[in-house]
């Protein structure tokens, strides 16, 4: 039953939001997933919310620009052919297509709204 228990390689911690969780694989190939390949080197674990043993969950990866370890949460990073942490996205915002720009700008305004 508990194959995946206690097989953690370490603890993944997002450098931006500090979300942390043990991870059980790192790389582009989640274990026991035949046809699935990840397009980046990821920290991942068994999906804790799924009863099935081989379901995986990607926690985060490194930003392709600054190499910070970031989680996949939309407040910390986004994926557009590569992983970018949000600070880097903002620095190079103009290079992203409009859809992404709008998304990031919207996020900023929402954050401002909730902060005020």
């Amino acid at each position: 039953m508990d194959f995946t228990e206690g097989s953690a390689l370490g603890v993944f911690t997002c450098e931006l939001c500090e979300l942390s969780s043990p991870y059980s694989f790192y790389g582009q190939k989640p274990p026991n997933t035949r046809a699935i390949v990840l397009l980046e080197e990821c920290y991942g674990m068994k999906d804790p919310f799924s009863p099935e043993r081989e379901k995986f969950l990607v926690l985060g990866s490194k930003c392709c620009l600054c190499s910070k370890t970031v989680c996949v949460g939309t407040d910390c990073s986004l994926f557009y052919t590569k992983r970018f942490c949000l600070p880097c996205v903002r620095d190079h915002l103009h290079q992203f297509p409009e859809q992404v720009q709008n998304e990031v700008l919207r996020k900023k305004s929402v954050q401002k709204m909730s902060a005020s």
């Binding site: 046809a35 699935i36 390949v37 990840l38 397009l39 980046e40 990821c42 990607v58 990866s61 620009l65 986004l78 994926f79 557009y80 052919t81 590569k82 992983r83 190079h92 103009h94 290079q95 992203f96 297509p97 409009e98 859809q99 992404v100």
Partner: peptide, 27 residues
């Protein structure tokens, strides 16, 4: 307009496709 001001070229695809937002592929 992107290309004009970019200091570092991230080599991102010009045309947006939701597919580029997904970090998984299936072989």
């Amino acid at each position: 307009s992107k290309k004009k001001s970019g200091s570092v070229d991230l080599g991102l695809p010009k045309d947006y496709d939701a597919r580029y937002r997904i970090n998984i592929s299936v072989c």
